[in-house]
Amino acid sequence: MARARKLSDQTVAVVLAFADAPATWRYGYDLCQLVGLKAGSMYPILMRLADRGLLESTWEREVPSGRPPRHLYRLTGPGRALAAELATVAARQVRPAGARSNPRPGPSWGRAT
């Protein structure tokens, strides 16, 4: 796993949203609603994470008739390791204030990816 550049707040939020249920395959629109991001921000993040090998994707296999199969995403091994690292850092930063154990990152996460 290589983190050549700092991750944006939004990217960290997406990674941590995946890390909440690492084995679960998630959809793009559901992720938008979960994290509170617009599609125009979410998909570039998903593309970058996939480009860096942090995200794996597959097409839905059991599709109800009348709609196309959806694209599903979840973290890879390196992606989970990154998520764990991010969660630890977040916890360390937030703990002094007595906040949640698995918090969403604040502005201190750094610049855009």
């Binding site: 959809y27 793009g28 629109y29 998909y43 994707s57 709609r67 196309p68 959806r70 694209h71």
Partner: peptide
């Protein structure tokens, strides 16, 4: 990136 286009279209259907 063509797969991503198909993914976005499929998601829009939902």
């Amino acid at each position: 990136r063509r797969d991503w286009g198909a993914a976005m279209r499929a998601e829009l259907a939902q």
